[in-house]
Nucleic acid binder design. Structure first.
Length: 272
DNA sequence: AGAGGTACCTGGCAGC
DNA sequence: TGCTGCCAGGTACCTC
């Protein structure tokens, strides 16, 4: 479900409720996420104030002076803001209650997400230490991609989905960015030119910004923190469209498994 | 070092 | 209606 735009959309939805809020309770109904949820350690945050929130890659960080809650939504997770005492549904694993009035609720059917407590220095944590640059940051551009790719014999799509290269480009937006840049997902990363990487970097930024503006992509079950769907699905050019006509020419969109993930492209528009 | 495969888990859907 | 098999937005970790 969530790629970078969905995580960013989620953070924007919950941030107003967390800003300077006092954590008044943390309820863990099911600690069996990707890694065991440290219920007791999290309880140590009760009574303390949220000092800030941020996103790094697809992680949401909720800072307090006692430690940082590190949240990941995995494939199927979502966070929503609800009134305290809102009824509990299936897969509602964790509630973070703030100001004794609202709860930030994690629902994650597949339980690939995580909720950990990290002590400073937060960015030295194993999960954060080796991440590549943010795609929307100034240090991510075509020259960087070109330089990183010189020793890489993997498919271009696998390369841009590698979190050590750049974070936040998941399966949907990888296909979309490659389409926008006119590049074949199966091209070998180290054989792609600097000029093409410049186009690709711009395409990645544009796609992600557009998706954030639309509130993310809702395929089956993604909703923003207020329960509304994202509207980027209408703007998808290739993802999920195999067998349909390309919006840019008369060709039929194809799909191919690359790195165990379904990949969509136009054989005519993407020759690079 | 880099490439490729496996594992974690539930739910929805197509096909029988 | 119910069963089976397949697919799904992520990514750490293992082996080669």
């Amino acid at each position: 479900m969530p790629e970078l735009p969905e995580v960013e959309t989620t953070l924007r939805g919950i941030e107003p409720y967390l800003r300077n809020a006092i954590i008044t309770n943390i309820e863990v109904r099911n600690p069996n996420l990707r890694w065991p949820v440290p219920t007791k350690k999290l309880a140590g945050l009760i009574g303390h104030e949220v000092s800030g929130t941020e996103r790094r890659a697809k992680y949401i960080l909720v800072h307090t002076l006692q430690g940082t809650i590190l949240l990941h939504l995995g494939m199927s997770g979502s966070l929503s803001v609800l009134d305290k005492n809102h009824s509990v549904a299936k897969h509602d694993h964790i509630d973070i209650e703030v100001n004794a009035s609202k709860i930030i609720r994690l629902n994650d059917p597949r339980r690939f997400g995580c909720c950990l407590l990290v002590k400073p220095p937060v960015f030295s944590h194993k999960l954060l230490a080796n991440l590549g640059p943010e795609p929307l940051g100034a240090d991510f551009d075509g020259d960087y991609l070109f330089q990183q790719s010189r020793s890489r014999a993997v498919c271009l799509k696998t390369f841009i989905m590698d979190g050590k290269v750049v974070v936040g480009v998941g399966n949907i937006y990888a296909s979309e960015a490659l389409y926008r840049a006119g590049l074949r997902p199966t091209s070998i990363a180290k054989r792609v030119s600097r000029v093409k990487y410049r186009n690709l970097a711009v395409a990645i930024k544009d796609i992600l910004k557009g998706a954030i503006r639309a509130g993310g992509t809702t395929l089956n079950d993604f909703t923003q923190a207020d329960g509304k769907p994202g509207y980027f699905k209408q703007e998808l050019q290739v993802y999920g469209r195999s067998g349909e006509v390309c919006h840019g020419c008369d060709s039929i969109i194809k799909s191919k498994i690359i790195g165990q993930r379904n990949t969509f492209y136009c054989p005519s528009c993407q020759k690079g």
